[in-house]
Amino acid sequence: MVLYKQELKSNLKGFLIWFLVIVGMCFGCILLYSSVESSLSDMGDIFAKMGVMSKAFGMDRLSVATMAGYFATEIAMLHALGGGMFAAILGSNLLCKEEFGHTIEYLAVLPLSRAAVLVQKYLAMVSMLLCFQVIGILCYLGGFAIMGEKISAEHLWTMGVTQFLMMLEIGTICYCVSAFSRKNRMGAGLGIAMIFFAMDILCRVIPAIEDSKYVTPFYYCNATDIFTDVKLSAASIVIAAGVIIISLILTVWHYLRKDLQ
């Protein structure tokens, strides 16, 4: 697992930057709750009556004036978007960086099969996404404890697990993109994450495209749905698993056959 360790090491700086920015911002927002609580209680009703905007962000079901509502509609969304973008950047760079960085001749002539390269790099990505989620959720639990606020740990961990699945799905799609490319595909990765995010908001307010909720991974990890006990869509989870498996099959199929240069 030498390559696995090397990948963790080389991506550590990026991980720390994304983690500190996203989780740090979310953690700060939790700590700020008491100071904005009074103004939020005045705004709660206004936010709930903004028509499609309220529907899109779930503020018609959860009041931002409560800690759970404030967390689910604001903080968790920020965490999901940041996590999705981090997964996209990570996945879209993992394989093709060896070719555009010209390090492929250093790596590919070491006694490692291409399959081993794929497995170790993918595991490194999964590990980083897992750390992002687990440490992030623990930080939020710590934040709630500091603030003396009670929030359902079950809801929080459900959110954490589904968001991890979302990050894994986006990361795996981008990993596949990375296998097919010889150029830096960070832009494409970010584009994929942003399109999925926009799709989640739009499918909630435009009935004509409601079915796209099965396509976007941001739908099944929506914190407002989780905190209002909306049943997790089994179809969405099955589709997510299918997308991950198909992306991995395509990645392996192409990477084992391609010319590395």
Binding site: Q6, K9, S10, G101, H102, T103, E105, Y106, V109, L110, P111, L112, S113
Partner: peptide
């Protein structure tokens, strides 16, 4: 037997690049 071969080969590319960090 690619992996076994690479174990016993020393290769030097025309342009040597390594991980910058």
């Amino acid at each position: 037997h690619q992996v076994e071969i690479l174990r016993q080969v020393g290769y030097m590319p025309s342009e040597a690049w390594f991980y910058p960090e």
